[in-house]
Design a binder for these strands. Sequence first.
DNA 1: GCTCTTATATCAGTAGTCTGATATCATTGT
DNA 2: ACAATGATATCAGACTACTGATATAAGAGC
Lengths: 158, 158
Amino acid sequence: MTDDTDDAMAIPEIGEGKRGESGYLGYLLRQAVAANRQATERALEDLGITQPQFLVMTLINAYPGSSGADLARAAMLTPQTMSVIVANLEKARRLRRLTDPANARKQRLELTADGLALLQISRDRVREIDQVLAADLTPEQEQFLRRWLVQVARRSDR
Amino acid sequence: MTDDTDDAMAIPEIGEGKRGESGYLGYLLRQAVAANRQATERALEDLGITQPQFLVMTLINAYPGSSGADLARAAMLTPQTMSVIVANLEKARRLRRLTDPANARKQRLELTADGLALLQISRDRVREIDQVLAADLTPEQEQFLRRWLVQVARRSDR
DNA sequence: GCTCTTATATCAGTAGTCTGATATCATTGT
DNA sequence: ACAATGATATCAGACTACTGATATAAGAGC
C-alpha cells in the first residue's frame, strides 16, 4: 500500500518535523524520559522492580530511617504517591516499617535483606543504562546537561 | 529545630549531593520532566486540560482524521494508553469519532469546535512555559539539547 | 489545662501508562 | 473462496501520580 489516496495526512517520524528540532522542548523531554523509563523497566523486569521502586529503594538505602514524607520530599512526589509505592514495596517484603520511638505518627522505613540484595543487583544495570545516556558526550557537555536539568527542576519547584 | 539528634540522616536539597551534578542522569531527567508537567498542568488547570490531552489535541489538529493507532505511534504511546486519553477527551466533548468509510474498524478523530477553541487558548500558555525552559540558553546550546533529547528518545525506541 | 497550627499517614477518586488478552475488520496468499 | 496474517480497538489488571478529604500525633501559644 504505497498510494496515499485517503485524506488523513501522514505523521512524521521521530527525528523529523515537529518531532525533531522544532516542536516543544517539553515534548522532547517527555519523549526522552519515556524511552529511558522503558529501557530501565525492561532491564529490571525479571526482578519485578519498577523505576519508581528502584528510586525509593535507593533513597531508603542512602537515608535509612526516613519517613514516607521525607522520601516524598526527596523524590519530589506527593506523600500519597509515596505511600502507594512504599505499600507495594512492603507487600513484596522489600522494606519494613518501624514506628519511630519519638513520634508515634512517623514510620521509619528500612530495606529488608531481600530488598538490599535486589537493590544491589539493580544498581549495575541502571548505571549501565545511565551511561548510555552520556555516551558520545564530552565532560563539558554532560556537565552542561546536568546543570540545565537541575535548573529546570528547581525553577518549577514550589 | 536545628539540632539533629535523631539518627535519620538529612536528605539534601534539590541542587545538592546526589540530586545535583552527581546522581543518575535518568533521575535528573525525570525530575525535570515532572516539574515541567506540573507547571503545564497548573497553567491549563482552569481549562481542565492535562498535558497528555494537550498533546493529543495538538496532534489531531495537525493531522485531522488520524486514528487512535496513528496517534499512538506519533506520541510513542501504546494504543491502549491513547484509547484512554481519547475516551476522556470524547467524554469532555472535545473530539468526535467518525467511522472511516474505507475501514469499518478504523475511527477517524477530529476536534469539536469546543476542542479547537480550547486548544487555541492553551497553545500560548504552553509555548510560554516552553520558552522558560530555553531561557538563558544560547541558540547553540538549545540546538545541542534538542538533538540530544531526540537521540535519547530514538536510541531506546522499539 | 486547651486550642491552633503543623506534620504524617492514609482513603477516595481521576488520569495516564504499561502488559496481556480478545474481538473484529482488511488484506494477502493459495 | 478461504485460511492466515496484520491492523485496530478495547477490556482487564497493575503501578504511578495527582487533588481533595480525613484522622491522628506533636508542638506552640494562650
